[in-house]
Nucleic acid binder design. Structure first.
Lengths: 216, 216
DNA sequence: TGTACATCAGTGAACGCGCGTTCACTGATGTAC
DNA sequence: TGTACATCAGTGAACGCGCGTTCACTGATGTAC
């Protein structure tokens, strides 16, 4: 149980009115809306506080302009999610040092948590289960598709450990889920107000690896 | 990223009007409000959908009657949280079979996840970081105090494993955090729509224990 | 024994809020004749 | 070369919603005299 600012008129950022795009370049606004929603999500840390009115104010446009490019709020949010999943995947991959596969796996886990702590709003949009209307299963499917490569990359990293004999087992899948659960859980507990009582993620990961191994 | 019903007038349960308590027994309503809020939280699975109007309708009373016993909505929710933490602690302790401390630790973890899956609304109120107004640090402190015994019980269970040589390390604290993170993460991912892709919690826990041990 | 009064357990109408979304519109710009 | 017109990129007022919370009130019940 944590604390947070409630409602509040989050769109304080009232940008000057945006000049109209030249003819044929209406699509520019679409990109600006996604970028503004992404920035607002990063600032507020909460998908529910990314409102159409807030995004429009940030861009310097009337709230209704959003409907020129998105059917509704959900469609905008899914566009944000797709962009953030791509960024998330690049970040994790960039943190993989190669070399010993178990060390690499731990490094990926650390990068995962660091992404979540650095961008809690983005992270929650990806893995926090923000709600889409049930009448649009296509949107949920787009989110799932956007996240699939990241999960596959985790499976692959676990498989490399199994192949090298650095982890034991036949199936990488449940091990991957366990590690995913741990990093997600740590990140979510930190977000929810338990941050002060959690040791550094590196300490936690190393402790659990050591705890299950005989003393050397 | 998952899907869920949005807003919706959740207080469909319009109970018949509740008869007034006899003189001197006003406190009865307080308990009924907490019970109704707890039931509504269990039904909706979402702390945000426990509204004053919904709770009052469930009890059969005007929304304003709530203010006779609670300063505001947050105070009601904290009363719910305190009750659910007590119930949660009893549930975990009851699932501890004693005997081998590592087996007991796993059994507690399984019970943790099963509680979360059986009562996602209650679980989210305890560990999902539902937001309290920042002007009431006393309420956040009450929640933390209510949750402390459960965390201490986990520390103790880890310590028993260390004492018996079933886990390796000096400090139970980071190991406890790692295990807590894993069970919380698993439960939260299941809630957020990933449930279909997650193996049974027992499989996951056993895989991770086995993965870090040399083949026997 | 009767009556005025304080207390208690609520009620009901109304407030202002931010929200997603609708609808009819505007005004600049390119194009057809 | 000039002009009517279609198109494009938006605007602005307004809607209905559910919400937490306020305020003045009501009506039964116990108690003091």
């Amino acid at each position: 149980v944590g604390a947070s600012t409630k409602a509040q008129p989050v769109g304080e950022t009232v940008a000057p009115r945006r000049p109209r795009s030249p003819r044929g370049e209406g699509g520019i606004l679409r990109d600006e809306l996604v970028a503004a929603a992404t920035a607002l999500l990063d600032r507020t840390g909460d998908p529910d506080r990314v409102t159409i009115r807030g995004v429009a104010a940030e861009v310097g446009v009337a709230p209704t302009a959003l409907y020129l490019h998105f059917a509704d709020r959900d469609e905008l949010m899914v566009a944000v999610v797709e962009g953030r999943f791509a960024e998330f995947g690049r970040t994790i991959d960039a943190a993989d040092p190669g070399g010993d596969p178990l060390d690499a796996l731990v490094a990926r886990g650390v990068a995962y948590v660091e992404f979540a702590l650095a961008h809690p709003g983005h992270y929650r949009a990806l893995f926090g289960g923000f709600s889409l209307s049930e009448e649009r299963p296509d949107l949920a499917a787009r989110c799932q598709a956007a996240g699939a490569p990241a999960f596959q990359a985790l499976i692959d990293a676990v498989q490399r450990c199994l192949d090298a004999g650095r982890l034991h087992g036949r199936d990488p899948y449940p091990i991957a889920v366990a590690l995913w659960s741990m990093t997600h859980g740590y990140a979510d507990l930190a977000r929810s107000g338990c941050q002060p009582m959690l040791p550094d993620v590196r300490v936690v990961l190393k402790s659990v690896v050591a705890a299950f191994r005989p003393v050397s």
